[in-house]
């Protein structure tokens, strides 16, 4: 009952935010164009947050996703400069993401370093590598193939509104594909259920014969590849790459997972709940900008709303435990 109330509270808060903007911005907020636009704006965050959910299910973190996103963008750009084709360069960047993720996994699960420490260290390593291979420069202009930048601007046309084409953005489609993969892995496979078992009680999972080491190691591959995908999406959106451009994704992605956890039974990370968190953050940025709220005040407000949501949820859970 109490848990239901808590979850209801989180959901009601998110609905209230949407209603607030719908009333405040009657002409522009709840339009198909704006909502599709929001999905495009949050697409990179959605990919990082979805894959972050995979490790957070086990109670782990990956702090290196932002710098991995930057690194992947820079790697692809440098490969473009070196004359690689678009598919080859993208594959190269994704391979870097996979290797980086597996490296994190090895550090956390085989070497046994706390995820916070291990991924904080690789955050620095990936960021340094991005600076190293780009020489600290932004790679843009003729070095970036036109088709690569055009991808983020395009998408199948779904309608024509006010004589302007309404597109289903390609970036949104990529994000949906990643979310689907993560949802299937976490919710529909033994692999996913075992990750939840590790998060529930690692000792019990070990005793029950769950291969905890292998699972933890492999789960970090998701965050590595997810970060690389997001970094490539970002690079496509800005048609350029620089060694810091993805860095902001990490904290926001973790915030989105926490926001999502306020919606779930037992406060577990669930990928669809994470997406509700992502959309809430995206809607806040979009709505507050349209309402001309000062950009710094906007940041304060977004942080305060995260605190309020997670705080209320924590209080609800404590109340639940107190009763149990």
């Amino acid at each position: 009952m109490r848990a239901g109330l808590r979850r209801f509270g989180g959901l009601a808060g998110m609905v209230a935010i949407v209603l607030f903007f719908a009333v405040s911005l009657p002409d522009t907020f709840l339009t198909a164009r704006n909502l599709l636009n929001v999905t495009q704006q949050v697409s990179m965050l959605a990919v990082v947050a979805a894959t972050m959910t995979v490790v957070m299910v086990m109670g782990d973190f990956d702090l290196s996703v932002g710098s991995m996103a930057s690194l992947a963008g820079v790697v692809a750009a440098m490969l473009f400069v070196a004359g690689w084709s678009i598919p080859a360069a993208l594959a190269g960047a994704l391979a870097v993401g996979l290797l980086g993720g597996l490296f994190n996994g090895v550090m956390v699960s085989l070497v046994g370093i706390l995820p916070f420490v291990a991924t904080l260290a690789t955050l620095t390593v990936f960021s340094g590598a991005a600076f190293l291979i780009s020489d600290g420069r932004t790679i843009f202009g003729r070095d970036i193939p036109e088709a690569f930048g055009a991808f983020a601007r395009g998408g199948p046309q779904v309608a024509t509104v006010d004589d302007r084409a309404l597109l289903l953005p390609n970036l949104t489609l990529v994000a949906l594909a990643v979310i689907l993969v993560v949802w299937v892995v976490l919710e529909q496979t033994t692999y996913g259920r075992r990750l939840y078992a590790i998060g529930g009680n690692r000792e019990a999972a070990v005793l029950a014969g769950v291969p905890v080491r292998a699972l933890r190691l492999s789960a970090f591959a998701f965050t590595g590849v997810g970060a690389a995908v997001a970094g490539l999406m970002y690079a496509s959106r800005v048609a350029s790459a620089n060694p810091t451009q993805g860095d902001g994704l990490m904290l926001t992605a973790i915030a989105a997972v926490f926001l999502g956890m306020t919606l779930t039974r037992d406060g577990q990370p669930r990928v669809l709940a994470t997406m509700a968190g992502v959309l809430t953050l995206g809607v806040l940025d979009n709505g507050l900008t349209q309402m001309r709220v000062d950009s710094y005040l906007r940041e304060v407000l977004v942080g305060a709303i995260i605190l309020a949501a997670v705080g209320l949820s924590a209080m609800g859970r404590r109340g639940l435990r107190g009763r149990g």
């Binding site: 911005l25 522009t28 164009r33 704006n34 636009n37 704006q41 970002y234 350029s240 979009n286 001309r292």
Partner: peptide, 14 residues
């Protein structure tokens, strides 16, 4: 820089 694109889209909508 990516957020600049998002904010341009927002003020266009506005």
């Amino acid at each position: 820089v990516g957020a600049v694109i998002s904010r341009i889209e927002d003020v266009v909508t506005q």
